[in-house]
């Protein structure tokens, strides 16, 4: 059984996530439009597509910070620990959110309810297939699990409170903050899928595969720098390697 406080916590998480998603949706008109031009060689159009993707990423960062700040206990951490956790979990949560928006029927990921992108669109935005293919593989894999909103929200909370992130100081507090979400996910799954004992470990393994994806993403960031495709300041702060 789910304890009342667990049920309440899950409902609050889902409501928070909906609120953060809605805010981004309202900002949608501000994003540089995705160019309709079909000319793949046009430098201007390619630059615009890259800008479109990076602006969607910036909105996602803002959503993730909003969500983290509302997680009970997060603001009790030192500012440095908050930054250490967000710095590494941001890309992983973006990948979780992308997988949640993956539509197998059109093999596309839909951002902000009406922007759907397939692999080719990701490539047109300047990303390399060494990164695009694992994103879609992961999204397909997550889609096969048919997780609901509560499971995604709990996975994101668990992902944020990962005590083994680089530069985290107060490991004990981060672990203590993570535990209630792990327990809630475990109970929630046992109630929702009583006959599937493997679902919980399968979900935790998705968190492990996010680590691999994160390193593939770092290679992508490095490749962008080689192509002198500059990341906007906020993304550069989080992902670029600053000497």
């Amino acid at each position: 059984q789910l304890a009342p406080e667990q049920l309440e916590m899950i409902e609050k998480l889902v409501a928070m996530q909906k609120q953060c998603n809605k805010r981004s949706f309202l900002d949608r008109p501000k994003v540089t439009p995705w160019p309709q031009s079909q000319d793949p060689q046009n430098r201007e159009v390619r630059q615009q597509r890259f800008a479109h993707f990076t602006e969607l990423a910036i909105m996602s960062v803002q959503e993730i910070v909003d969500f983290a700040k509302q997680l009970p206990g997060f603001l009790e951490l030192t500012r440095e620990d908050q930054i250490a956790l967000l710095k590494t979990s941001t890309i992983e949560i973006m990948l979780l959110e992308s997988s949640r928006r993956y539509d197998p029927a059109i093999e596309s990921i839909t951002f902000l309810k009406d922007f759907s992108y397939n692999k080719e669109d990701f490539a047109k935005a300047g990303l390399q297939f060494e990164f695009i293919n694992p994103i879609f593989e992961f999204s397909k894999g997550m889609n096969d699990l048919h997780l609901d909103e509560a499971e995604y929200a709990l996975l994101i909370a668990i992902n944020i409170f990962s005590a083994d992130r680089p530069n985290v100081q107060d490991h004990d507090l981060v672990e203590r903050l993570q535990q209630p979400y792990v327990d809630a996910l475990h109970s929630y799954i046992r109630i929702k899928r009583p006959n599937d004992q493997l679902m919980f470990p399968r979900m935790l393994m998705k968190l492990v595969s996010l680590r691999t994806l994160s390193s593939v993403h770092s290679e992508q960031v490095f490749a962008l720098r080689l192509q002198d495709k500059k990341l906007p300041p906020l993304l550069s702060e989080i992902w670029d390697v600053h000497e």
Partner: peptide, 16 residues
């Protein structure tokens, strides 16, 4: 160090 200025700003801002 004064790094992650923008991230610090997002964490400090309380939009509600």
């Amino acid at each position: 160090p004064q790094d992650h200025q923008l991230l610090r700003f997002l964490l400090d801002t309380d939009e509600k």
